[in-house]
């Protein structure tokens, strides 16, 4: 008996160490990335000058004298992401409501795997699809040359659908049955119940899904680089049907060739992107904290 006990105890400590190590590895990874970005990015920002880096729209790393302003790309990232939200959130949310509340069993068996499959499609495929289908479509239907904020927004809007649908759906499903019964009890119709009781009750989950969607959209690279046109536009010339460069595409476009301060400035672009992600994550934990309090 005693040896058995001892064995299980030592087993327990061993497993505890394994779990602890696993947890530690992800923490180390995050810290290492932070350190790398800050150590190489911050000096570059210092050398370029914070104001010249963030608030200048002139990007000319191969000119002499070189200029490294990324304002156009910050604005570009924001526009493209906003466009993705405008397209992705209504469709995703309505799809989630449909799946959770209205969908017949047989249809569910088709739609749900389709949504999951959408999540698994590699982004380069989305980019290819965008370049061959969406870009010509935008060109024919709306004018311009097709490589534009609009094309990028459409592609990203489709790409964030799975995130929004699956998280919203599960949060809608998690609304207690009693809420609905109460609503029916006072004579509300199914639609009234869903839209005025269930969806508001699932609010925090839905916001979470939207924020994760924003995170995905702002960080997406391979698909955007193929449809955005990647031109650095002065702020006054940014239009829905004109090309745009985002923070992520700026990095991937020039990283392979860049050297010296040019390369550092691309890492600094990564720092700015990182700040965006931190802001999003903070918003996420604020929402979670509020839900827990309620």
């Amino acid at each position: 008996m005693i040896t058995n006990n001892r064995q299980s105890k030592s087993n327990e400590t061993l497993m505890q160490a394994v779990f602890f190590m696993s947890a530690l590895i992800s923490v180390i990874a995050v810290l290492a990335i932070c350190l790398f970005l800050l150590m190489r990015g911050i000096p570059a920002i210092g050398e370029i000058g914070f104001l010249d880096f963030i608030f200048s729209e002139k990007w000319g790393p191969t000119n002499t004298p070189a200029s490294y302003g990324i304002l156009s790309m910050i604005v570009g990232s924001i526009y493209v992401t906003a466009g993705a939200i405008v397209i992705g959130v209504p469709i995703g949310l309505l799809c989630a409501i449909f799946l959770a509340e209205f969908c017949p069993e047989r249809l569910y068996k088709i739609v749900k795997p389709a949504v999951n499959l959408l999540a698994g499609i590699p982004s380069i495929i989305f980019g290819f699809f965008g370049m061959e289908i969406i870009v010509p479509f935008v060109r024919e239907a709306y004018g311009g040359n097709g490589f534009s904020i609009m094309s990028s927004s459409i592609i990203l809007g489709i790409m964030i659908l799975p995130t929004i649908i699956s998280i919203s759906e599960s949060s809608i499903r998690a609304v207690p049955e009693s809420y609905k019964e109460g609503s029916y009890g006072v004579g509300a119709t199914k639609e009234e119940t869903v839209f005025k009781v269930v969806v508001p009750a699932a609010k925090s989950g839905i916001f979470t899904s939207i924020i994760l969607g924003i995170g995905r959209a702002i960080g997406e690279t391979m698909a955007v680089v193929m449809v955005a046109g990647n031109a650095v536009m002065p702020l006054s010339k940014i239009k829905l049907l004109k090309p745009i460069r985002t923070l992520t595409t700026n990095i991937v476009m020039e990283m392979s060739y860049a050297s010296g301060l040019h390369e550092e400035s691309l890492i600094a672009t990564g720092v700015v992107l990182f700040v965006f992600i931190i802001i999003l994550n903070t918003a996420l934990s604020l929402i979670k904290a509020r839900t827990n309090r309620n």
Partner: peptide, 15 residues
Amino acid sequence: DTEVDKLVVGALEFD
């Protein structure tokens, strides 16, 4: 001393 790339604004750029 200066060297400026005068590529037209809005030109598509690919890698």
